[in-house]
């Protein structure tokens, strides 16, 4: 399940002559890769559209931090940020709790129709969101949740469960049965065993689930745009599109909004790049 990235991650290999000769090319490629992000950051503190486009590679003449104030004031990016944090936090908690429970049950080899359930969950995970979209809106309206953050949270949990269940079921299956047997002989109930022994052991798999769910829900746009119509309740990506539609002429303020969306994920990535890389790949590749 864990995606190994390198043969021996503890020690770095020595660079050969060939590596050194190719190095300038790789640096050029890396700079090209970083350019759009750098342009976004630098552009967000430039004074005018003209400065943004005429001097794309230069630092701003004077740092126009007021663009961020404008993005928060006129673009309501502050409200959207709070909504996003709320939605992500609750979606992650829901996905981890429900995914670990279901994963625990499905991790048992003798679970009835185990292969069928796993197949159904797999199918659910490759289905395009659009295939559920319109009836989903009706179901949420029936439950009185349409146009609220709860609509997004429930939809996100349901969308995030398949990879979570797959990863956690595989992880729990790899834990020796003797452990549960021993706990049972010592008089622990299944619930007691799960909460005080199994769940804590599963930390690495749970960390992976948290990473995938955080990034996916933070960045999600299609449901965010269509399930929440109230402008005060939008999350960052959907709110950003509304901001862009309303103020599409002053790019530095829009770039400030885009930077606000990107900084949290880039920070998390900068701190935990290994875990994020492994987690995202494991989430898509599964088992």
């Amino acid at each position: 399940m864990e995606v190994a990235m390198t043969r021996s991650s503890a020690t770095a290999a020595r660079a050969t002559l060939g590596d050194r000769l190719m190095r300038p090319l790789w640096i050029l490629g890396a700079l090209a890769c970083l350019f759009p992000v750098a342009w976004m950051f630098l552009g967000s503190v430039k004074k005018t559209n003209q400065e943004l486009y005429d001097h794309p590679f230069s630092l701003p003449q004077s740092w126009a931090w007021e663009n961020y104030a404008q993005a928060v004031r006129e673009g309501r990016m502050g409200d959207y940020l709070v909504n996003s944090l709320l939605v992500v936090a609750l979606s992650v908690v829901g996905t981890v709790v429900l995914g670990a429970w279901s994963g625990y049950a499905l991790g048992k080899r003798d679970f009835p129709w185990r292969a069928t359930w796993l197949g159904v969950i797999f199918l659910g995970s490759i289905l395009p969101v659009q295939a559920t979209l319109f009836p989903l809106i009706r179901i949420l309206q029936t439950l009185g949740l349409h146009d609220s953050l709860w609509a997004l949270i429930l939809a996100y949990i349901a969308q995030s469960l398949p990879p979570a269940i797959w990863l956690l079921a595989a992880y729990f299956q790899s834990i020796p049965r003797d452990l549960e047997e021993a706990a049972r002989i010592d008089g622990a109930s299944a619930w007691r065993f799960y909460t005080s022994i199994l769940f804590p052991i599963a930390k690495p798999a749970i960390a992976t689930v948290v990473v995938i769910t955080c990034l996916n829900t933070w960045n999600e746009f299609l449901l965010a745009m269509l399930l929440v119509l109230d402008p005060m309740k939008k999350t960052l990506p959907a709110g950003m599109i509304a901001f862009e539609a309303a103020h599409s002429t002053f790019y530095p303020a829009l770039l400030a909004g885009l930077t606000l969306i990107s900084v949290p994920t880039l920070m998390v990535y900068a701190l935990f790049n290994r875990q994020v890389m492994r987690g995202m790949v494991a989430g898509a590749v599964k088992s």
Binding site: V37, W218, N219, M240, L258, S262, T265, L266, Y269, V276
Partner: peptide, 13 residues
């Protein structure tokens, strides 16, 4: 790194 960005950000930039 670009893989952690929202596609909305990528599209607009």
């Amino acid at each position: 790194a670009p893989a952690v960005l929202s596609m909305v950000v990528v599209g607009l930039v």
